[in-house]
Design a protein around this nucleic acid. Structure first.
Lengths: 221, 221
DNA sequence: GATACCAGTTTGGTATACCAATCAGGGATA
DNA sequence: TATCCCTGATTGGTATACCAAACTGGTATC
């Protein structure tokens, strides 16, 4: 694997893992020293992360993209459009094996499962569902949207009830798909995404002061 | 404007304008010489054009992305999802000025208008409509989809009847939006996009032999 | 004490040298 | 004649030197 790809991957992990806070300044030379690569692969990695929305240009320099509540709301609308479309496609599939694999993913989360795992699988549910549609563009749209939401979801304060509710909704979406009821699945997804967004934005607005105190830039909606 | 942006813009224009054929190999050093910039900005430009889907990695090297009929069909489904969502948002707007501007765009195309202009405005109709929705992600999705379709649309053999029909459909979409009938506009858009796709794919399949003879790689659906 | 300005430092932008992997082509061999 | 292999040229990947613009801190001036 080339150094560019390594730098890109590691830097993405640090950003998504909040090891570098939203809104923090980045310099090419700091990254260079941090990862032991020269500026050429560092620049390439930054250019790609920019298209993912994880870093932004700040005048002449680089910044880890702040968390933007208005953006989160717009992403929800975008997700509703593309995930509903993907679900309608998936519902027409003969082969239900992909749905089994996704259901198994959900099953693997239980009482003792670490928070990290819930977060990852909660993301993968949506991404893998979109992948099943067979449409590369719908898939990439969902994957990229979930990547952009990842840090915000990580910072969200979720109670157990909310998680259980989300999982139940996931299961009913799968059931509708399995039965070939694409419109139902789409409607359930749209409602699920809307609910997630509302809880996410509310949580971040409540926590905003604390997050800023930790050095995390959170832009109001 | 930085050299990277200049190289990116000029190279994009050459690719979209078919000055470099779909499927052609690119070398960083050829681009370097062609545009009088060093490899650093050239590399940056290639990385960004790769995310737009205009160039692809071919093993170790670079290739102008071929025209891919399966991809065109997938993009149509993607467009139907995002443009319909954008239309529903736009229909709820109070301010109809944006729609006036788009209608004026359509009006500016007449009997003596060059083909280039029809192509540009036929694209901008969809992009500007998505922009009116106010959702940055829907807008970018439509803009990027239309960019990817641009070369294929340019190669399409369109008769006057097809163009007239497309323009009439554009106008009826605008009328529905103006009346606030978002669902009608969405349905009209979905049908319009489906029809465009069918004619586009059919035309390219018919012309495939000739296009290949001109050195244009066209991958079958 | 506030402000304007200046020098030194830092930063991204660019050019370029070097390397390893790859490719093309020609010649030796069966 | 067909095939294999070797060699030199080409290519993307990387490191790095240099530049101009932007920033920083301190100082002189009002």
């Amino acid at each position: 694997m080339s150094q560019m790809q390594q730098v890109e991957r590691q830097l993405r992990e640090m950003i998504l893992g909040l090891d570098i806070g939203p809104g923090e300044k980045l310099t090419e030379r700091w990254i260079e020293g941090r990862f032991g690569a020269s500026r050429t692969p560092v620049r390439a990695a930054l250019l790609r992360l920019e298209t993912e929305g994880l870093v932004s240009r700040d005048g002449r320099g680089w910044t880890v993209s702040p968390i933007n509540l208005a953006e989160i709301e717009q992403i929800a609308v975008y997700r509703q459009a593309v995930e509903a479309a993907a679900a309608r496609l998936t519902a027409t599939l003969e082969d239900k094996e992909g749905l089994d694999a996704i259901e198994a993913m959900l099953d693997s989360c239980g009482a003792g499962t670490p928070r990290e795992e819930w977060h990852r699988i909660g993301t993968d549910f949506h991404v893998e569902l979109a992948r099943l549609s067979g449409n590369e563009f719908l898939f990439r749209a969902v994957r990229d949207a979930m990547t952009r939401l990842s840090r915000a979801r990580w910072l969200e304060i979720r109670d157990e009830a909310a998680s259980a509710r989300a999982w139940a909704e996931h299961r009913s979406i799968l059931a509708a798909l399995r039965a070939g009821r694409g419109d139902d699945a789409a409607a359930l997804l749209i409602s699920h995404i809307g609910g997630s967004r509302d809880r996410l934005v509310a949580s971040l607005q409540t926590e905003r002061r604390g997050l800023r105190a930790r050095g995390f830039a959170v832009i109001a909606a």
